[in-house]
C-alpha cells in the first residue's frame, strides 16, 4: 500500500525539532473568549505522537474553538499552547505546513473539479505540479474517488465530499490530522467507510485529533479522549477507563407505558441498581448484572413494555458527568 504519511516532505525548509517523546499538542490552561462569551475555559491536555485523541461533547461545548486554535487560525486569548513543539502565535505558517485539517463544514472549491481541488491544495503547500498531481491521484484512490476525478464537486454526495475533504487534508503528508466532526450528517454506510480510512491512516502512523458528539465514533477511533461540557474538560482517559470509572459494567434499559412509569424514588426501584436515571422516554438502571436486575423488577410487580440489557457506553459516562444526554 502507498504511504500516506510521514516520509520526506518537499524541500521547503521546514524541519521542526520534535522528538518522539515530545507531545504533538500541549495545552495548559488554554482559553478562548469572544467578547464576554467564553468558548473555551482554561483547559489542559496533551496529545502524544501516534495517538488518536478525541474531544467528546455536545454542540457548543468548545470543541471546534479548541480545534481552530490547534489549527493556528484562531489566536488563544489565554493560557499556553504548543503545536509540534512550536508556538502558534509565532510559527503559525510553519505549523500549518505540517498539519492536515478537516473542518466541520466542507470548504471544497466548488469552482474546481475533484482532482483540481487536490492539486491546487498541494500547491498551497509548495508541492511542485508534478508531485501534486501524483499525490492527488494517490489520494483519490485512497478515498475511493478515482472514478469521479474529473467531476464537479457540487453533485457529490455528503460522504464523498467528506472523503474528498479528508484527502485534501492529507495532501501535504501531515504528521497530525485534525478532524472536526468528521462523520456528522453522514449515513451509517458512509460513516463506516470513513472510519475504515481513518483507521488505516492511524496504522500508517498519522496522529489524529478529532471532535465528535457520537460516542460510538469516539469508542471506535480514539485511544484517549477528553469529555468537554460548557467550555471545560470534565473527564479524561481511554474510552474503557472512562466507562469503568464513571459507569457500571451493564445497563438495564426499561420502557414503561406512560401511565405506569415509576418515579425515581418509587420504593419498588429501591436497591435494584447502583444508580438510576429516569429519562423522558426510558429508565436506566446501572448495575453489574442487568439480567438479575430485570428479574428483581419483575418480582416486585413492575411490568415494563420493553427491556434491554447492554454494556455501558460513553453516553452513560456523559450522562453521569453532566446529567444530560449527548445528542438531543
Amino acid at each position: 500500500m502507498i504511504s500516506l504519511a510521514g516520509g520526506s516532505r518537499p524541500g521547503d525548509g521546514y524541519h521542526p525539532q520534535v522528538t518522539t517523546a515530545d507531545p504533538l499538542v500541549l495545552a495548559r490552561d488554554l482559553s478562548k473568549r469572544f467578547g464576554s462569551f467564553t468558548a473555551v475555559d482554561g483547559i489542559s491536555f496533551s496529545v502524544a505522537p501516534g495517538e488518536a485523541f478525541g474531544f467528546l461533547g455536545p454542540n457548543g461545548a468548545g470543541k471546534s474553538s479548541t480545534m481552530r486554535m490547534i489549527g493556528c487560525v484562531s489566536p488563544p486569548t489565554g493560557g499556553e499552547l504548543r503545536v509540534l513543539g512550536m508556538d502558534p502565535a509565532r510559527d503559525g505558517a510553519r505549523i500549518r505546513a505540517l498539519l492536515g485539517v478537516v473542518p466541520q463544514q466542507d470548504s471544497l472549491d466548488m469552482e474546481l473539479t475533484v482532482r483540481e481541488n487536490l492539486i491546487l491544495y498541494g500547491r498551497y503547500f509548495d508541492l511542485s505540479y508534478r508531485e501534486s498531481r501524483a499525490r492527488a491521484d494517490e489520494l483519490l484512490d485512497f478515498v475511493q474517488l478515482a472514478d469521479r476525478a474529473g467531476d464537479e464537486v457540487e453533485p457529490l454526495s455528503g460522504g464523498m465530499k467528506r472523503r474528498l475533504t479528508i484527502a485534501r487534508g492529507l495532501v501535504n503528508r501531515p504528521r497530525l490530522l485534525l478532524l472536526d466532526e468528521p462523520t456528522t450528517g453522514l449515513d451509517p454506510q458512509a460513516r463506516h467507510l470513513l472510519w475504515d480510512r481513518l483507521y488505516r491512516l492511524k496504522q500508517d502512523g498519522v496522529s489524529l485529533v478529532l471532535t465528535t458528539h457520537y460516542m460510538d465514533e469516539a469508542e471506535q477511533l480514539c485511544d484517549r479522549l477528553v469529555v468537554m461540557d460548557k467550555a471545560r474538560i470534565v473527564a479524561e482517559g481511554s474510552p474503557r477507563a472512562l466507562i469503568a470509572e464513571h459507569a457500571t459494567r451493564e445497563v438495564l434499559e426499561v420502557r414503561f407505558a406512560p401511565d405506569a412509569r415509576p418515579a425515581e424514588d418509587d420504593p419498588r426501584l429501591a436497591g435494584v441498581a447502583e444508580r438510576i436515571e429516569v429519562l423522558p422516554d426510558r429508565t436506566l438502571l446501572y448495575t453489574q448484572d442487568g439480567e438479575a436486575a430485570a428479574v428483581t423488577l419483575h418480582d416486585r410487580g413492575l411490568r415494563p413494555v420493553a427491556t434491554l440489557v447492554r454494556r455501558s457506553s460513553l453516553e452513560d459516562v456523559f450522562l453521569r458527568l453532566t446529567g444530560r444526554t449527548l445528542v438531543d
Partner: peptide, 14 residues
C-alpha cells in the same frame, strides 16, 4: 458562502 479562504488559511498561506 464558499469558505474559500477558510480552506486556504489552514495551509501555510495567511
Amino acid at each position: 458562502y464558499a469558505r474559500t479562504y477558510d480552506a486556504v488559511l489552514a495551509t501555510p498561506l495567511g
